[in-house]
Design a protein around this nucleic acid. Structure first.
Lengths: 109, 109
DNA sequence: AGCGTTACTTTGTTTTTACTAGTCTCTTTG
DNA sequence: CAAAGAGACTAGTAAAAACAAAGTAACGCT
């Protein structure tokens, strides 16, 4: 019994990547933040279709994962802004490839 | 009122990409198929944690999207194999970038 | 005949995700 | 100054997705 026909296992690093990116909205939130820091309501407008509560939840997750930073500017008009960390910025090449692929292979409709 | 401070909109091609990749399992299924064609049960073994019904559903979706092909070999021992189409194969560079990023930025734990 | 494998489909439950409202702190407007 | 609005969330509940387990059906192995 030496013929362990190895299962067509997906690379474990890729599996870890999709723990995040395979959850709805996460990829789009990160993609929006690639254009620079944004506030909660800017993100809500940029990520079309997301609800307040889900956006809030996702931002907590992404912060805990070390991909985005939440910075609070005690104004007085208290302003919160979300920024990509270096780890988050590192996604740029991957998301660019994804964009290229999508343009070439996914119909606009 | 010309100062429409443009919403930090995410690129629409990227949004379309995450219509697929932002659904649980899709990225991992496609990643598994990058290693070559596989049968239903090979995929079930390769995509750790997925259930039969969801795998079945996802394969139909991916077929309809033109990313994978379902080929039936009427044996007699009837065998079904799933393969990436050219569109699916086009994901290779993006998934490779994602793997690199994940290795560098996501903790193994 | 009886058990195992492939390839799914069906059913019922649990987990996720989403939507609607509401809170609280300022800021702007009359 | 009071009312209305924006920003940043939180809570409660409803809808959607995923899961596990079982069932179906055709074949192969012993």
């Amino acid at each position: 019994m030496s013929d362990e026909h190895e299962p067509r296992l997906c690379d474990s690093a890729l599996v870890r990547a999709f723990d995040f990116l395979g959850k709805r909205w996460n990829g789009i939130i990160l993609g929006s933040l690639l254009n620079g820091p944004a506030s909660f309501s800017e993100l809500r407008r940029g990520v079309v279709g997301i609800s307040d509560s889900v956006l809030s939840e996702r931002l907590v997750e992404l912060s805990r994962a070390g991909l985005v930073t939440r910075r609070v500017d005690e104004g007085p008009p208290v302003a919160v802004s979300y920024t990509l960390t270096d780890a988050g910025l590192g996604l740029l090449p991957a998301l660019r490839e994804l964009t290229v692929w999508s343009s070439a292979n996914l119909p606009v409709a």
